[in-house]
Design a protein around this nucleic acid. Structure first.
Lengths: 355, 355
DNA sequence: TTGAAAGCGCTACCAC
DNA sequence: GTGGTAGCGCTTTCAA
């Protein structure tokens, strides 16, 4: 209980010889208070170290300036960090505070956070659920706290949501590699076979077929160790002497495994095999790796999320015209791991135009 | 304003035919309410979707269940994420909510967050300041909100703090490498020459001297691109034909640059040169990198921070016996990039005991 | 231009 | 066991 000796508007009122109401008005710059009174009040407020009590204010106005966010985790290899960084700064400037909770994919914690945040009267909740089962969130928030669902576990069936279009990544990946002259373009995937993976697969497959190319899809390992999965697949294909000229990996980590396996086998990237990733880990940008990949527009997502949350907070759930749904696409980031197709055993063709 | 139609204790009281006071007590499991009344009240609360209003409660009790945390950023390559993940889950279970703010090292934002959080009556503030200038935090929090300073910008001059002992890292690094038989152990540093770097340097230098070894310290580049700094230093030392047998780098990224440069020069790690890092990036654990390094005990730090914050919240700033100060050490994580010293040009000595 | 009264949802205190 | 009263710090409404 640190609220030990904070001055209140009454403290200020007493010093200024005014009523607490006048002080309240003065501090909020109400039009019906004289300039000099305002100045005097503000001076005293500064001197006494007055800080408004948001609880009392919210109780009275029924407004809130808090937004909750629940995600599996922030940290390495997870895009929520970048999204949060962006939201945080923007929100602060508007006087909005962000409550953040990391669940580690525990449903129990999801409930707990949701409950705690609702008790703190958040104006909106942004949640990236662990599973597609989200009834506990809805049950707690009822129709008093609007929820924005984030990420691939849920889709457009949720009233307010922001999702990624990985189908588009598939289309873009194939078209890009094909434009470089590649015809054997493989797709490396890992389990589990979820929404996200499925979208990439569909985008890839349909585009390959549209281009009259034969899809080559390889599954290996699971999400806990995609690096090894990538290595394993490359080694297997080398043994079978059927290495494609381009490989698109569902994750950067998998692509790193692929590049490492190729390197160990003295196969040059991108001259002999082009490698394309997905996620844009910070390590991927390092010179000696320089992995072409798909980047998530985290900044834009953060800005949009905040915008949606603010709209819903103000909206009172009334004027709300049928839900807010946003779909973002990853953008292709071209580095040194992809290059034009160079037919094998055609010596002299060393035009290394890594366009 | 989403607080549209939340039931309050009065709503429940009306339905139950009780006073709102009785309901309040029943929900808090007060001893002077009959079991059946409690059951009935709780049932109605569930049915109506009652959720307590933390604002009203705090206003009345003057207690708070919110902790604020201000850090430069969460995300890849930053330890705050792991610390926050840990704190978040623990706090949730105790009904404590965490406000998080990322400053991007902007002083303006630091002030803004601090102000917003104090308005929200946090019980304690944990802050990792951008610079050693922290008077704005103290000015806003006064002596009503206890502050725990985190990280290397501030030291034990702050009443409550949690810092890292990088001097110890230096001692451990040198002793470890020396025990492997290395005598030429170099230290690679980058600018700026701050607290953190200085601690590593001192620990390194003093231990080297204690062992009668000659310190070899190389500075290069700055914190924005330590990877290249590492590459540059290796290439320079190779040109000068004075590569040491062991290199300790102030960051993992720098060590990755070192390893890459060594690889390009066909110098084997760890047989010819042992490389030791600092930070334990997630990429460092990958098989093909397998960098020996120092890991930050993020989980333990998170737990301790929460414990400190809770103690300070309850403490009312009274019983407070002279500040809480904690110092953590990084732990040595041994992987494949370090090995016993092998004297050069002694053929046949291929005993690759990567102990 | 200023202020008195009422109330936001909850809890503490004391009387019944 | 139960409930009335008062008050937390602030805003809103309306009267002065």
């Amino acid at each position: 209980m640190p609220d030990k000796k904070r001055p209140t508007i009454k403290t200020i009122a007493e010093i200024a010889g005014l009523s607490h109401v006048a002080v309240s008005k003065a501090l909020r710059d109400a039009p019906d208070i004289s300039a000099e009174t305002k100045a005097r009040v503000r001076l005293i407020a500064d001197e006494t170290g007055y800080i408004a009590n948001a609880y009392a204010r919210s109780l009275s106005t029924k407004a809130t300036n808090m937004i909750g966010m629940i995600v599996p985790a922030v940290g390495e290899n997870v895009m929520y960090s970048a999204v949060f960084n962006e939201m945080s700064a923007l929100a602060a400037k508007k006087g909005v505070s962000l409550l953040l909770g990391c669940t580690g994919r525990s449903i129990e914690l999801e409930k707990q956070y949701c409950q705690n945040m609702c008790e703190n009267r958040i104006g909106a909740l942004i949640v990236s659920p662990s599973t597609s089962e989200v009834s506990h969130f809805i049950g707690i928030c009822k129709d008093t706290v609007p929820i924005i669902f984030l990420g691939g576990k849920t889709g457009l069936e949720q009233r307010h949501c922001l999702t990624m279009d990985y189908y588009d990544s598939g289309v873009t990946a194939v078209n890009y590699l094909n434009r470089l002259g590649h015809r054997r373009i493989a797709l490396f995937l890992y389990h589990p076979d979820n929404n996200t993976i499925r979208q990439k697969l569909n985008g890839y497959r349909e585009t390959m077929e549209k281009l009259d190319l034969k899809p080559e899809v390889y599954w290996e390992g699971d999400s806990s160790d995609t690096y090894h999965a990538g290595e394993t697949l490359v080694n297997r294909l080398i043994r079978q002497d059927s290495l494609p000229s381009a490989i698109w990996c569902a994750s950067d980590l998998m692509a790193l495994g692929v590049m490492e396996a190729l390197r160990k086998n003295k196969i040059r990237v991108p001259e002999q095999v082009s490698v394309l990733g997905h996620d844009d880990l910070f390590i991927s940008a390092i010179d000696s790796i320089s992995l072409s990949t798909f980047s998530t527009p985290a900044g834009a997502i953060g800005r949009k999320l905040l915008e949606m949350a603010e709209a819903l907070m103000k909206d009172d759930g009334q004027a709300d015209t049928g839900g807010m749904q946003e779909v973002f696409r990853s953008t292709l980031t071209i580095r040194q791991s992809t290059g034009p197709y160079i037919a094998p055993s055609v010596p002299g063709d060393r035009s290394e135009q890594d366009k």
